[in-house]
Amino acid sequence: MRTFLYLSLLFIIAACQQKQTATPTVAEYFNYGDTGVQTAGIKMIPIHTPVGNFKVWTKRFGNNPRIKVLLLHGGPAMTHEYMEAFESFFPKEGFEFYEYDQLGSYYSDQPIDSSLWTIDRFVDEVEQVRKALDLTNDNFYLLGNSWGGILAMEYALKHQQNLKGLIICNMMASAPEYGRYAEEVLAKQMDPKVLDTVRQIEARGDFSNPKYMELLLPNFYHEHLCRLAEWPDPFNRSLKHINSSIYTLMQGPSEFGIAGRLANWDITKRLPEITVPTLTVGAKYDTMDPEHMKWMSTQVKKGSYLYCPNGSHLSMWDDQKVFMDGVISWIKKVDQSAN
């Protein structure tokens, strides 16, 4: 009996030591194994497409064999810059993560062939990025915000065997439902006179009219996109660097509803096909219906829901503590259950 207790104690101690060493030290966390010139974690990844070969920009933070998060920005064709919010939180947790500019975005190549701007082509791009970064189902978490949420869902439907976890932030599973929510709920919260002028401009297709954004910025964007009194510099840089031709082609001229190639996108009936652990994030003031986001978490096989009571479309900024605490705790929970 005494020998059994002694061996059990040794086993417990060894298990605890193994668990402790699983979390990288600071030196290990910042050791990327690079030789030669150090590039601050930046890697230009070759992407093969039907119309040629291009490169996309990625930047790595940290080194963790169990938790690697790839961030998918919105737009389409915004930039990784507004996702820099994660730099204040993920390193402290020891998470390895990657910022990434999708093809056509500011820091990546920007080809002009319009045949490239399809969901299927973007999904294939993410898969090429995954392979280049050596992300596997033992460690790969995919986090998408807005359009990045569409891309993350579509990637999961095609390649979920490569995922450890999926995080869908501020994006519904149906573009028509998103449009209806904008029309039937958000538009009715706007000053009727302002709404009437906005609708007149839209009816004329006069989207370059400075009055259009002059009205939408205070009456819609500051209410439902980012509610901070002063927008953070990373978000302003992302707006400055948007590729408007791709954005308009796929999303339409503004966040106030949806048009373009994504107008009829809807995967609501396919959500049960997603079987990996999935977190959906909704927010009270979002352009997306938070109740729909909650419903989505009940349709996937292993769903969870995070609600940001003070957040909007960029709740990673305007309800930051709730958003980051919730996302981090969920990732840790999935990691612990898998190990």
Rank of each mutant, 00 (worst) to 15 (best):
T248Q: 11
E87V: 08
L157E: 06
L5P: 06
E81Y: 14
V322A: 10
V322Y: 00
P290H: 06
A283D: 09
Y82L: 03
I47E: 03
R204I: 04
D233E: 15
A132P: 03
D34R: 11
V185M: 04
F207L: 03
G179T: 02
E87G: 11
K188M: 09
R2W: 10
W231L: 08
T23V: 12
L215M: 02
N64E: 04
K158M: 11
L228D: 09
K294Y: 09
T118C: 04
K68Y: 00
G282Q: 08
I42A: 12
K43L: 12
H313G: 08
L133H: 09
P210V: 10
S105Y: 08
I13V: 14
D266Y: 07
Y107L: 12
L239G: 00
P76W: 02
N139Y: 11
E99S: 12
S245A: 12
K188S: 05
V327Q: 01
F256D: 00
T3W: 11
I112E: 15
R60W: 02
V37C: 01
H222I: 07
L157D: 02
F90E: 04
G104I: 07
D109W: 05
M250H: 04
T268P: 03
T248I: 14
V69I: 14
C308V: 05
G179Q: 04
C226V: 10
I246M: 05
N339F: 14
N145E: 11
G36D: 02
L71A: 00
T287V: 12
Q189L: 13
Y32H: 15
F90M: 06
M296S: 06
E223C: 03
A156N: 01
E230Q: 12
I267S: 02
Y32K: 14
F207Y: 15
Y32R: 14
V56H: 01
P210C: 07
G149V: 02
A175L: 10
H224E: 05
N243H: 00
M324N: 04
V322E: 10
K188D: 05
A338C: 08
I201W: 02
Y307D: 03
P232C: 08
N145S: 11
Y98A: 01
G149W: 03
I267V: 15
N53P: 05
M153D: 09
G205I: 04
K332F: 09
N145F: 08
K92D: 14
D325I: 09
Y285N: 09
G303R: 01
C308A: 13
F90Y: 15
I246P: 01
G144V: 04
A175C: 08
C169M: 13
E96C: 06
L314H: 07
